[in-house]
Design a binder for these strands. Structure first.
Length: 302
DNA sequence: GCCCAGGTCTGTC
DNA sequence: GACAGACATGGG
């Protein structure tokens, strides 16, 4: 991790293959997003560290990311944890050179990685958030998924008012574990989805499901098995969470509808590619399937 | 009205 | 192991 600690401000020094602007486009893809906000080119993120609320105000220049703390100065240890958080958020530990090498050899990926050069896998560090967001988004269109998440956060999350804006902390597993199915039905969750979310909340709240434990697994296959033993987590969700939360570059939500549409478009097909076809073309992406997916998803919204 | 959305589970062959 | 049907709702 490369960063400079100026006490009031932190400056992150990302590796060369990074574009703050491209990441900002991704983060700004829905105006219903409540887990962060973008205003006047600044990215705001509210988080809680050891019970203390911290608001990050982030801006990107060509070779650095600057983080300010509008709520007041932080302790040295807190600043280090925040630097680490942002470093992981933008997946800056990863060396993208070999991905770009592979992608430039591939007819499908080449134009896309050229176009969105510097985009990185934006993470969801909070396991509970990653899991529930994935469950919420299952089988419904994205705008509706965002609408559900927005209601979920506004109903059960924690707000912070600052300079006329409201920032939100994601609901805690403890709070959600105590809900009834009916509480979530009121937000237009299906009965099934409500059950899944509450059950996952219970597991996280009672400590039987943790990020640390998941990362203790031997390999991605073991992590996947562990996740898929949980009700509501199938193949797609397991891979999504491995990408977004556990930093797996080879996770591959191959059944994803968005991925299918992106490939259809990239290849100029009249139908969506079949699973065997996708397996065939993804052989070239070995080890980088998650990044291929991120770039293909990106190609869908502009 | 019909089909498709960031799928998963259950029951059946 | 493969496959149909149910699940809830919104948009085209």
């Amino acid at each position: 991790m490369e960063w400079t600690d100026n006490k009031k401000t932190i400056i992150i020094h990302p590796p060369k293959e990074f574009s703050f602007e491209e990441c900002l486009v991704f983060l700004g893809r829905s105006n219903q997003e409540m887990t962060h906000q973008i205003k006047d080119g600044y990215l705001y993120k509210l988080m809680k560290l050891n019970g203390k609320r911290i608001l990050l105000k982030i801006s990107g220049q060509s070779r650095e990311i600057t983080i300010d703390f509008p709520l007041g100065p932080l302790l040295k240890n807190e600043r280090m944890l925040i630097a680490k958080y942002v470093w992981d958020w933008f997946d800056l530990e990863r060396d993208l050179c070999s991905f770009y090498d592979i992608a430039y050899q591939d007819e499908i990926l080449r134009p896309i990685v050229q176009k969105y050069d510097g985009l990185r896998m934006i993470g969801i560090s909070n396991l509970f958030e990653a899991l529930t967001w994935a469950i919420i988004g299952q089988q419904i269109n994205l705008p509706f998924a965002y609408a559900l998440k927005k209601r979920f956060i506004e109903q059960f999350g924690e707000p912070l008012e600052f300079e006329g804006q409201t920032f939100w902390l994601y609901p805690t597993p403890e709070k959600i574990a105590a809900l009834s199915v009916e509480d979530l039905r009121n937000l237009q969750f299906s009965v099934r989805k409500a059950e899944y979310v509450i059950e996952v909340a219970s597991k996280v709240a009672n400590g039987t499901l943790t990020k640390v434990d998941l990362l203790q697994n031997e390999n991605d296959d073991e992590i996947k098995k562990t996740l898929m033993n949980i009700r509501g987590i199938g193949e797609w969700t397991a891979h999504y969470v491995m990408m977004k939360c556990l930093h797996s570059s080879s996770a591959f939500p191959i059944t994803d509808v968005g991925l299918h549409n992106a490939l259809k478009q990239a290849l100029g097909l009249h139908r969506k590619p079949s699973l065997p076809e996708i397996k065939g073309m993804s052989k070239k992406w070995d080890g980088w399937e998650a990044y291929a997916t991120i770039y293909l998803w990106r190609s869908l919204y502009d």
